[in-house]
Write a protein that binds this DNA or RNA. Structure first.
Lengths: 194, 194
DNA sequence: CGTCTATTTGAATGTACTCAAAAGCGGTGG
DNA sequence: CCACCGCTTTTGAGTACATTCAAATAGACG
């Protein structure tokens, strides 16, 4: 049973007893999604917290004017892919989560999530800690997007997320970086020469 | 004693018993900083978690090339102003926190913070919840900075943080929005006419 | 091999920036 | 009360980074 991946992750931060582990396991459900399927659509409430075991997801906002999708983040193995704002407050999400390539996730619904935290209070600590980390990453991203030009941002992305870069088409990376696919293509070409 | 402000905030999310309240109070120290003073400098480790009771702070990154400061966020009454990444991992920060106008904060150092969470585990839940909220705000900000032009971002900022807008000079807001002070001035001028 | 999607290229354009300088504004001291 | 100083905002002119649109090419997959 693949819930191990999540438990391994959790055990880096907190220790759970055997009873807690089995309670924990009882809450999570493994599900597999095919390419193109949606885990979340904008306007809907994010019903599940998703932990990716294997595959690749994209989270993106659809610009109502242009119809373009703007990538907010990618999620691959051992990442969370949940609109935390929508999930925690159970209010409509402003973005979408869709499968890039066949993906297996562990899911828990909002009600179960609350129940799980009451039954295993130690998990509060785990979620606090990973939120802190994610927050740091987001702040860093905001700084970089204001300070650095597209080229530095691209190479920083390659350094920071080499695994994602190799799993995801170039035009989605461009969108993540906040630039057009054409412009990223030019950046890459420019640096092939040198 | 002004720790009330923080306790009021906390009590919106969790309930603390009288004993816990007094333990809680024993951990936090009130301090006042004058305009221009630093609560954190880049390269230093963020030693304190800061809760603003009154005043205004700016968090900013200094671009090593241009020497420009790029505003990451502002913090006013009843906001947190801490580099969570640096504070939680006790590693050097990449940004600065400085006083815009005389500010009173509640502080707790890293060691005490850990101790406090062990003595009052219920607080894990509070911090998890506020991190979730802050995360939502940051994700929204990233979406807007990619999707919207400078003008919409400015008016969204005014809507979202009217109090900050009135406390902070225009050129700092420009920096927060990721544009130059001159360009923001032009945006404002353009809309005075209509 | 053909179809569909992704990437590349070219040309014209726009949004936002830089630099330099002027104007406004608030406080302080003579 | 006015002059001066420092700081913030405004204006002008030239520029750069990144975009759009259209079309050509390259890759992937059945």
């Amino acid at each position: 049973m693949n819930k191990g991946a999540l438990l391994v992750n959790i055990s880096k931060y907190i220790k759970l007893g055997p009873d807690e582990v089995s309670i924990f396991n009882s809450f999570w459900v493994e599900r597999t999604f095919e390419k193109g399927e949606y885990l979340l659509r904008d306007g809907d409430i994010c019903r599940y917290d998703n932990y990716v075991i294997d595959g690749a997801l994209k989270a993106f906002y659809i610009d109502s004017d242009s119809g373009n999708e703007e990538i907010l983040y990618f999620a691959i193995d051992d990442w969370w892919a949940t609109d935390m704002d929508s999930f925690s407050k159970q209010r409509p999400s402003m973005y979408n989560i869709q499968v890039i390539k066949k993906t297996t996730v562990l899911q828990i619904n909002h009600h179960s999530f609350q129940k799980m935290l009451i039954e295993i209070p130690a998990l509060e600590r785990y979620f606090r800690i990973i939120l802190e980390s994610y927050l740091g990453a987001l702040q860093r991203r905001i700084i970089y997007s204001n300070v650095c030009d597209a080229e530095s941002r691209y190479y920083d992305f390659l350094d920071t997320y080499p695994t994602i870069a190799s799993k995801v088409p170039q035009y989605l990376i461009a969108s993540y970086l906040g630039i057009s696919a054409e412009f990223l293509s030019r950046i890459i070409k420019k640096n092939k020469a040198s």
